[in-house]
């Protein structure tokens, strides 16, 4: 595995005064009594690259779901771009979600559509009548390195390539924040590394990236901000962290 990380931005990220994502005392208790998050405070700035680490069931996915308002917090407040999303009306959600580009472990591609159609779909359903659709799709597929697979169907691609299509689809409407929930969960180490490099490249273009992961090697190699969650609590938040607490075997 190469350590030649995609070149890092020479200048440190320009922190605007206001964080692009902020959590204030956020807790989430599910109706069955499970406490998924407890009293979480967080601030993520424009241009940050953050790893969200922790064991399964620690609350990583809940945090992602709260961000896109797939769920509402039980207590506390969440702000995206200065806008409170924790109490946002259902009608305003589509606009909020257009600020995000999201990818998941299971890609969520439409198997009956080609690569180009999958990517175009995201624009067709949010900005119908978009001009230069084909060019935009080709450009973003070029960024993820799939410019020669436009007319292939997802089944004809490898896992890594399918995840790249998902990334292209998430990127095509130029999101402010890129959320990746276990994007390398189904991939072998080499392919995973390729995906992480792609995410670093996206971050290098100014997009805030938040990646929830179990992938210890990747986190330790990249050395970026690490937010560790365990039992619903933020147990560690380091600017250039590793998967486990330095010198220990715990989070």
């Amino acid at each position: 595995m190469s350590v030649a990380v995609a070149e890092r931005s020479s200048a440190p990220p320009q922190h605007a005064l206001r964080p692009v994502i902020s959590f204030h005392g956020v807790s989430k208790v599910y109706p069955n009594g499970t406490e998924a998050l407890r009293d979480v405070d967080l601030a993520i700035h424009q241009g940050d690259f953050c790893f969200l680490v922790g064991p399964s069931g620690a609350g990583k996915s809940t945090l992602v779901r709260l961000l896109i308002r797939d769920e509402a917090p039980s207590t506390g407040r969440i702000f995206i771009d200065g806008q409170e999303v924790s109490r946002m009306s259902h009608r305003k959600l589509p606009k909020l979600r257009r600020k995000f580009g999201i990818v998941f472990q299971d890609y969520k591609l439409l198997t009956r559509r080609t690569v180009a159609q999958n990517v175009a779909f995201a624009l067709q359903v949010t900005r119908p009548g978009q001009r230069h659709l084909r060019e935009k799709v080709e450009e973003v597929l070029w960024i993820v390195g799939l410019e020669d697979k436009l007319d292939k169907f997802p089944d004809e691609l490898s896992g890594g390539e399918q995840q790249r299509v998902a990334i292209a689809r998430a990127l095509v409407h130029r999101p402010r924040i890129f959320l990746a929930d276990e994007p390398t969960g189904n991939l072998d180490p080499d392919t995973s590394w390729g995906i992480v490099q792609l995410l670093l490249q996206i971050n290098h273009r100014g997009t805030t990236v938040l990646m929830a992961t179990h992938n210890r090697e990747v986190v330790d190699l990249v050395r970026r901000r690490v937010i560790a969650i365990d039992n619903g609590r933020v147990v560690r938040d380091e600017a250039e962290g590793s998967y486990l607490r330095e010198g220990t075997a715990t989070l």
């Binding site: 959600l93 979600r97 995000f100 999201i102 359903v125 949010t126 689809r169």
Partner: peptide
């Protein structure tokens, strides 16, 4: 449902879906 899920994720309005 995957298609609807994606439409919602990328920010399509309910009426569009």
């Amino acid at each position: 449902r995957t298609e609807i899920e994606i439409m919602k994720l990328v920010g399509a309005t309910d009426w569009f879906v």
